[in-house]
Design a protein around this nucleic acid. Structure first.
Lengths: 152, 152
DNA sequence: ACAATCTAGTTGATGCTTCAACTATTCCCC
DNA sequence: GGGGAATAGTTGAAGCATCAACTAGATTGT
């Protein structure tokens, strides 16, 4: 219960800009993906991780970790994606508890279309409006955050 | 429908680190505020903005803009805060449609307690683990994003 | 002064997230 | 090899966000 170490004025300003800016940025990306492709950001993230996995499939737990989602949330999201036909679940042979999430052809095609538009939004509202070295700083900073949190 | 300008490898890495890191960071702050003070991040943000306003009160629309929330969302959140006794609504004299959100004494006290803990989390997981100049870069970058989005 | 229009704010339905509880399987080890 | 603990994943309920529809009051133009 010691005295809190408050942020100084400039830290405060930077922190606030980050909080407000990142909220608004996420909002934009969310709405764009939703209206143009019917995907939420968390659905999109799952498709991305699956598309990068060997054979376009991953065990649920690993997928959850990759996408920074809880297992419960992944289960629900995955069910939605499955009912849209973008993902399908397969049992794992070696571990009878296990389940693979597998990207369908339709899922891959949808992702390719969505990714094209998504990258434009990321450019338009972030990458093209900031200095390249500030993007690098962001990368460095959040990598450090992830390391602090014990992730890869 | 032109060719998408894909991100290069280093942009990709930086962008990914940001997406993952910011999601996880928000999660931490959310859980911390919730378990220690019973507040969601969006409730906390509203208390912060109110505490900074003259007389600890603001018109709903202005508060919504400050906190980057939709008016609908503010209405709901404000009702929750009101039922917790942290905020109260007053009619506006000059505009009969208008409503003021007013921070209560209890609300202010709760915010003070929450802010002390919150700043520690922000330090522990972000500010103390990154270089000061990277924080400045983050501030610059997201200010540019906000400007691009037409905010202050 | 009246109608058309615009702005402030709320509401309820719907959908996504979180949390705790649950089943089923595997691992550990005595 | 059998009982206890750990792991994989799902489920349902409750809470929060989003969207469209709505009420009520202000503004504008004629």
């Amino acid at each position: 219960m010691s005295e809190p170490r408050w942020l100084d004025a400039s830290q405060q300003r930077d922190w606030r800009a980050y909080v407000d800016g990142s909220v608004r940025l996420t909002e934009i990306m969310d709405r764009d993906l939703k209206t143009r492709h019917g995907l939420s950001v968390s659905e999109y993230e799952i498709l991305v991780r699956l598309s990068e996995a060997p054979g376009h499939r991953l065990r649920m737990a690993e997928l959850a970790d990759n996408a920074s989602q809880s297992r419960s949330r992944l289960s629900h999201t995955c069910s939605r994606l499955e009912s849209k036909g973008l993902v399908k679940r397969d049992n794992c042979g070696t571990d009878k508890r296990g389940v693979y999430a597998q990207l369908t052809d339709d899922g891959f095609a949808t992702l390719e279309r969505a990714a094209r538009d998504h990258v434009e939004v990321v450019r338009e509202y972030l990458i093209d409006v900031i200095e390249p070295e500030d993007l690098e700083a962001i990368g460095r900073a959040f990598s450090a955050v992830l390391k602090r949190l014990g992730a890869t």
